[in-house]
């Protein structure tokens, strides 16, 4: 099982190479500012989709309120930077903690619900979070919160994303993750195996919410402003679509889903209406021809080609 650690090390080395290449492209200005920004957005969206996958894909609890937790993190981070002049890392950690606490408070009562009821309840709670923020003048109300320092650069976004991906990958490959998957597969049998289903559902929801908060904090410090309209249920749909497109229960899939959708969206940004129509058609086509998503529940590390590439197990 020490091969587990070896796999991790290899993956980290590969990630560092990817980072070095991308950072090189950015520093040498081979990438124009538009794409520099979009690479950061991709990292943020990967955090959102991977953390949502923990809740929706692995634990099978249908959440449609992920953008609400992102909003909490974004505003927490913004307030700490602007009003309290805290260092960025403090903002990120506090964003995690705040979003996780609120996620836990929301998760405790709602995780008793299942299926569509849970979906619609989380959607409603996400909207409530947004509307409450919109009515708090201290954070700018409906006009948005302005003057946030642009602390998020590519390095921050990339390494935070890397941390989150590893955290969640290891989460799902532990007894915690197995408990989640057991709940998804058969809740009654999971209880019969001694899995406290409420506890593990709420835990997954809490951790997922916390990381959405981290993504929100990165997001707030990418643009000069945060605005409640960035966190409607339509953005939650967007993250859900990334997860489903990549494959529920595949981290590789969530990363791919976030990458592809963000890229498409950036490429078509000059034609806003057409972009959404195309997006819709692609989405429907995907559900018709590959409903399990691009990766199903397969990870890239378990594909034969990757194993050979890494010299076997």
């Amino acid at each position: 099982m020490s091969s587990l650690r070896k796999t991790d090390l290899k993956a980290i080395v590969i990630s560092l190479i990817v980072f070095a290449v991308l950072q090189g492209l950015i520093s040498s200005e081979a990438l124009d500012p538009f794409w520099q920004l979009n690479i950061i957005v991709i990292c943020i969206n990967i955090i959102m989709s991977v953390s949502l996958n923990l809740i929706n894909g692995y634990t099978g609890q249908f959440s449609l309120g992920h953008a609400g937790f992102m909003a909490i993190g974004a505003y927490t981070g913004a307030v700490l930077s602007v009003n309290f002049h805290m260092p960025f890392i403090v903002g990120l950690i506090t964003a995690f903690v705040t979003a996780a606490i609120i996620g836990c408070l929301i998760g405790l009562p709602t995780m008793r619900l299942s299926g569509d009821y849970l979906a619609i309840a989380t959607l409603g709670l996400g909207e409530i979070i947004r509307i409450v923020i919109m009515n708090v003048n201290y954070v700018g109300g409906a006009a948005g919160f302005m003057g946030i320092p642009k602390s998020t650069n590519f390095a921050w976004a990339f390494f935070v994303m890397l941390f989150v991906v590893f955290f969640i990958k290891n989460y799902v490959n532990s007894s915690f993750g197995r408990a989640c998957v057991a709940i998804r597969e058969n809740e009654i049998a999971a209880e019969a195996m001694g899995v406290n289903t409420t506890k593990y559902k709420v835990l997954a929801f809490t951790v997922g919410a916390g990381f959405a908060g981290v993504a929100g904090c990165l997001f707030a410090h990418t643009f000069y402003i945060v605005h409640p309209s960035s966190f409607t249920f339509l953005s939650s749909f967007n993250y859900l679509i990334m997860v489903v497109m990549g494959g529920m229960g595949s981290i590789t899939g969530s990363i791919a889903g976030a990458f592809i959708l963000t890229t498409i969206s950036a490429l078509l940004s000059d034609w806003p209406e057409l972009r959404m129509s195309i997006y819709a058609v692609v989405l429907i086509a995907l559900m018709f021809y590959r409903p399990q998503g691009l990766f199903g529940n397969i990870e890239i590390t378990s594909l034969p080609i990757f194993k050979r590439f890494k010299g076997g197990k």
């Binding site: 679509i241 529920m248 209406e273 129509s277 429907i284 559900m287 018709f288």
Partner: peptide
Amino acid sequence: SAPRISVLITAIGVSFFLEYTMMY
């Protein structure tokens, strides 16, 4: 006969399609 999530996502897709095609 597809999983319900697929149909739900399709519904979201149809929703976007109607909104933005109309907008176009």
